[in-house]
Every structure is written in structure tokens, then in C-alpha cells.
Simulated scan of single mutants.
Amino acid sequence: MSKKANPLHYLRAVFYYLGFYPLTIVHATLSLIISPLLNFQQRFKFVTLINYFYIFWLKLCCGVGVKITGRENLPTDGAYVVVANHQSEWETLFLQTLVRPQCTVLKKELLKIPFFGWALGLLNPIAIDRSQRRGALKQLLTEGKSRLEDDIPVIIFPQGTRVPVGKVGKFNKGGAMLALSAGVPVIPMIHDAGLYWPGKSFAKIPGTVQVHVGEPIPVEGRTVDEIHEDMVAWLEEHMKALEIA
């Protein structure tokens, strides 16, 4: 069930953003200067250092923490495809601290955001033009397979856009297609961040975001539909368990 913000939550969010924006500008500027001297692994570590601050500062200013269940299900070596629900900006910040390194599939408009988007572009994301659906799928499979062959996990939000708490949306098959094409497992992941950081909301509501990581879904000898059905079944089951669907 969605939670309502009160005036104190807005005030606490003001303090959060008073730290968020200035540090983002400084760190992004440093990242742009230093990144040409680093390889991808080093660049990812440096650019995403600020994400740890974001999560810490969110807890300190707004009282939003996180609890992870199933972290042991994340492979310790080799590449894989993570499929997760998308409810807010929170998961785009947090997942870069949980899966390291990684390549995120995102809409290309994000890369145009001053400083934040410029730094994000240094991480070699797969920036999709959502108006070109056929071309977007080809890009996902081509660039995604290339990243996976370099042992870099790929993060996909199969709902395609933020879906508010209480709704499920439609899960596309891109994650299953990419995993099968590259011969790597799918790691399903669910969270309830939308309860505490609703999409496009200024106010943050105190509480603990629950993150559940599922066991790897194998792809060997299976079809895209079989992989996708297992993925969707797990996601929907755990969304209902967290009471966000």
C-alpha cells in the first residue's frame, strides 16, 4: 500500500538534495577529467563511488534504509542478466552498489542530464531510443552480448519504464532473449522502493526498502518463452509478497 508524505518528509528531502546536487556536480566533473586515464573496471569503481554516498545520505536525511535478501544468489564470477522491477530513481542508484561492475539498459535521454547524465555515460550503458522499438531490440542484443562476453553483467528493467506501486505493467522479453543469446543465467530481482521513494516524487518516506534476489534461472536447452515465463512468474510472485502489485 502506498504511503503518504507529510511536511516533515518534504523538509528532510530538502536537506537530502542540498547534499545530492552539489556533490554530484563536483564528482561528475572529476569523473569526466579522470576517466580517460582509467580502464572500464577502474572507471566504474570511481564514477559509482558517489552512489554509496547517495544511499548513506538518504538514510541519514530521510530515514530510508535497505535490507537485502538473497544476496548469495548473485554469481561471484561470470556474466549474467539481472531483471528487476522499476518503481523509482532509487533502484538506479542502489543497483550500481550491489552489482559491480555492470552495464545498465536505459533510455538515452538520461545521458543528456547535466553532470549526472554525463557521468552515467562514462559507464558504457546501453542507451536505448524507445521510439525505435525494432532498432532498440537489435541494439540491446548486439551491445548486451558484447558486454556479457566481457564478463560484465547487464541490468534490465523489463517493464520498460517506472510502474507505480499497485500496478504490474508488462514485462518485455528482451532480458530472456539476451540471456539465451549469450548463454548466461537470468537473475530476477524485486524491491519495494516505490513505497519510500515514489517515482518523480520530491518527498521521501522513512522506512526500509526490501530487495529480494532470486536464484539464477538457467537458459541452457530452453526457449525464450520458457525463460521469460519463469522470470515473470518469480517477479509477480514476489511483488505480491511485498504487497506492491
Rank of each mutant, 00 (worst) to 15 (best):
E89F: 14
W90Y: 12
L93G: 06
F94R: 05
Q96P: 01
T97R: 09
R100D: 07
Q102K: 11
V105L: 14
L106C: 05
E109G: 05
E109V: 01
L110Y: 11
I113D: 11
P114Q: 08
P114R: 10
G117I: 00
A119D: 03
G121A: 12
I126A: 14
I128F: 00
R130H: 08
S131H: 11
R133M: 07
L137I: 14
K138D: 11
K138E: 12
L140K: 08
L141G: 10
E143G: 06
D151T: 04
I156M: 12
P158S: 09
Q159R: 11
Q159M: 06
Q159I: 01
R162K: 12
F171T: 05
N172D: 12
G174L: 01
L178H: 05
L180C: 05
S181N: 12
S181F: 01
V186D: 06
P188V: 03
P188H: 13
A193M: 02
G194L: 02
L195S: 02
W197H: 05
W197Y: 04
P198D: 02
S201G: 12
S201L: 04
A203L: 10
K204P: 04
I205P: 13
I205N: 10
I205W: 05
V211K: 07
H212V: 15
G214M: 05
G214W: 11
P216T: 08
I217R: 08
